[in-house]
């Protein structure tokens, strides 16, 4: 079982709960961009984009590297892997629940048939 710190997940999901941030993430999966380049793309102020980037950096979804005077933002795949692992884990959990539910009804039917 993967050891998740729920606060980390809260940060990730909070970061992804905003459509602008999801768009930023999508752009960064294609190529690394500076805050200025992102601001131009979204017709936003550098300050506005910076705030979104800060949320994304805090969640671990985005990392920043200084390249000369500019900071390049890149997407961190590892963080999203944690999320997809969680999704996989819950998929397996619910699939197993439904199988157990079916077994419960099968057993119940057998019992009822014996009574007849």
């Amino acid at each position: 079982m993967v050891d998740y710190r729920s606060e980390e997940l809260d940060e990730i999901f909070h970061a992804l709960s905003n459509s602008t941030r999801r768009h930023i993430v999508l752009e960064l999966t294609k190529k690394d961009l500076t805050v200025n380049e992102l601001a131009e793309k979204y017709d936003m102020s550098v300050q506005g984009v910076s705030k979104h980037i800060q949320v994304l950096v805090r969640s671990g979804l985005v990392t920043q590297k200084r390249a000369g005077r500019l900071k390049r933002c890149s997407f961190n795949y590892e963080t999203l892997e944690n999320v997809s692992e969680l999704i996989q884990r819950y998929r397996a959990f619910w699939e197993a629940r439904l199988e157990a539910l079916e077994k419960y009804f099968n057993k119940k039917k057998i019992k009822e048939n014996k009574k007849k």
Binding site: F13, L16, V83, I87, Y90, R91, W94, E95, L98, E99, L101, E102, F105, N106, K108
Partner: peptide, 16 residues
């Protein structure tokens, strides 16, 4: 971020 699973259970709806 939504997990969706489906299954047909051979039991009536009210019992499920």
């Amino acid at each position: 971020n939504t997990v969706v699973v489906k299954k047909v259970i051979s039991a009536p709806r009210d019992e499920v």
